[in-house]
Amino acid sequence: MKVAITSTGNTLESLLDQRFGRCACFVIYDTESKAIQFIPNPNKDAEEGTGSASVEFVASRAVQKIVSGRFGVKIEPILDSLKIQMIVIKEPKKKIKDIIKMLDH
């Protein structure tokens, strides 16, 4: 199963990005093959519509869960209808490697 994590940078030491649409980087983690992929967010500096554009971007990679700090009101219903699970972590100091370790439980 693939999980997307919003990240502030492209290393395992980077912190979780609290924003979804405008996060710097998406980390796509495959829980079965343990493959980790860093993809810079193409919508990072867009003026508007970043939320739905990012949802499309992530959904096209067949992700089933998204870990972020916050999801906007517009994308919540979209993710709900796509049956993508949202996981909200309210700790800004979480590192990507810690989240991956937790996902491996």
């Binding site: 870990v67 709900d80 996981i87 700790e91 937790m102 439980h105």
Partner: peptide
């Protein structure tokens, strides 16, 4: 355990474990 929040997109199935830390 990890104080995270999550939703249940599959309404028919009940969630038993935390999707993040289990």
């Amino acid at each position: 355990g990890c104080k995270c929040y999550f939703n249940n997109p599959e309404k028919e199935k009940e969630i038993m474990n935390c999707p993040l830390c289990g």
